[in-house]
Design a protein around this nucleic acid. Sequence first.
DNA 1: TATTAACACGAAACCGTTTTCGTTGTTGAC
DNA 2: GTCAACAACGAAAACGGTTTCGTGTTAATA
Lengths: 359, 359
Amino acid sequence: MKKKITLKQIARELDVSISTVSKALKNSKEISKDTTEKIQAFAKLYHYKPNNIALSLKNRRTRNIGVIIPDIVHHFFTTVFRGIEQYANTKGYNVIACVSDESFEKEVINMELLANGSIDGFIMALSAETQLKNDFHHLIEIIDQGMPLVLFDRVTDEVICDKVVINEVICDKVVINDFEASYMAVKKLIENGRKRIALITTESYLNVSEKRAQGYYKALEDHDLELDENLILRLPYQFEDETMSEAFFASNNLDAVLCVNEIFAVRAMRIAQNNGMKIPEDVAFIGFTDGILSKLANPALTSVAQHGERMGNIAAKMLIEKIERDDEIERDDEIETEEESFRTEVIKATLIERESTIN
Amino acid sequence: MKKKITLKQIARELDVSISTVSKALKNSKEISKDTTEKIQAFAKLYHYKPNNIALSLKNRRTRNIGVIIPDIVHHFFTTVFRGIEQYANTKGYNVIACVSDESFEKEVINMELLANGSIDGFIMALSAETQLKNDFHHLIEIIDQGMPLVLFDRVTDEVICDKVVINEVICDKVVINDFEASYMAVKKLIENGRKRIALITTESYLNVSEKRAQGYYKALEDHDLELDENLILRLPYQFEDETMSEAFFASNNLDAVLCVNEIFAVRAMRIAQNNGMKIPEDVAFIGFTDGILSKLANPALTSVAQHGERMGNIAAKMLIEKIERDDEIERDDEIETEEESFRTEVIKATLIERESTIN
DNA sequence: TATTAACACGAAACCGTTTTCGTTGTTGAC
DNA sequence: GTCAACAACGAAAACGGTTTCGTGTTAATA
């Protein structure tokens, strides 16, 4: 077992100084050709690689980015994660992953842990509990420390106070146009002749669910369909099948269902089928999150693609740009504080039509 | 924007030395009560937290563990990941995630990157390409450097040469009993009266698929069923639906199918159903990986649970134990080199019976 | 021949901690 | 009054690099 070799050891072995070794390995022209070759040969032989930790300390940059997501066994989040990882890797960054498990406390703890030097910036989606509590002090603190932060999907909303937008959490964001996507989906159903369109959603503190519900309301309204509260089913985020009663399908005479995620949709389809309904003849289904479930469901589910991978790419791009811009500013002696700007990138969702709506 | 405060700044501000601050914050009795209180109050006020990078450099321990998996948008791997993350967090470790994307090269690059000080140990599942090439020099190098390594699921096999076990990659491993699980699944089908049992698997370089195939062979043999090559379908890992021909189901008169993963199973079920076959009356299905697809398929899929979360827990436990044991040894002056021991932990898979086999 | 520039290298500071080993100043014992 | 013991603190090394700024040697120039 040979531990990794250091500059110091190379220096001692070749009887030169540490600085000489360091310079030689970077092909500095300060060092003679002979010495350089000798050192490089030796370094290669012993597989010398500079120690990342030492570099991080020196440069005050880790080339790590922290990603905090509510759940890892979750198609959409992993898709975003993949997008982040992909982009980050091409730029020479590593990803440190933490899972908040939908818990406020774990989110806070994880952030504090990572914020103490381990990473150069955060990309995260808020936990359900955080959204419920509406407590963002940990985010604000992070931002205050000058640590770049990008929120995606589950972001904080603008807080409007006396007609003034007071958005406490000022940072870059990446979202999809949930409202419009939902609106278009419902519009599509209406155009297909559906009249009794149900909505299956989560309890409403989840930001995205709420926006999707809003799109649903607006679409109904714009097409002169009455909003029937009986057609709206609000389920806990993690629910058991019994919660979704067959009665909902049997008694409501519904002919279409919009679900805020694909799991709800696939479960609902099963219950409807068991209830003797034909899909899409009797009832059409549209879900959100175009994941593997949508593709492999029977019938295949029409679904709103959220383009998670692209979202991840963009989030990573925004973060890394900010990190490297900060880097430059720090190097510049001229402290020309160009006003920081924060963007909210909106990705357009697209409806993938499959068997559950096409007849 | 206030950057994080350091010991040095506290020291300057309070007009004491850095060492005094450091000691005071750890309640060293070397420092007077007065000074200690003053320093702690100041530190608290400015939210002082020690810099992880500096600590890592000093302690030569990062409290990070590197996880390399072939794919992140993958139910089983994310389950394991969750298990790793869970356990690691309780022990104060963070997880750095890298995705090899089933590519040998990316696997090597990621490992080299992480191995230079960023982490204290690896947990990984081999990429498909790595298994195909049978090239493990990167693993051996890592082990040689004294970096703890735990393989899970996709592990290296023992290489047997002249009746001597030459397993080049000597490290801890966590696997499930693929052979037995497959055997039991087929046995169950046979006991249910199935006689023409098909196997849908991947191309055979994937270690686990091969073991599952072996279990299938053995079960047939032990129950005096002939092995019919026509009943075995080998598909590329990522395949299009067209590859899985309806002819396979139509012409083979089969009455049961064992699939090495749930995606294959769900797709196969669809094709069979489209072919007019009733599940489970005409044909029964069993898949591997008891994921969300199995639960939500229609009919629900009987599936071999691989207990990914437990696997992750155990892998993390094994790794962290090794890391901390190394730690102790390093601290010990007595260099009593107790022979290193490596374990292969086998997790027992369990068959979750659902509608696709029960009639 | 004296000056100087180029060359090749080393010393030391620095990143932010921890920790060992002094170094003071005070107190108590003899 | 001397000495040891102790309390309270600081200096410095170490972790593994990078980088600035010398410094000594040689060769070219005036």
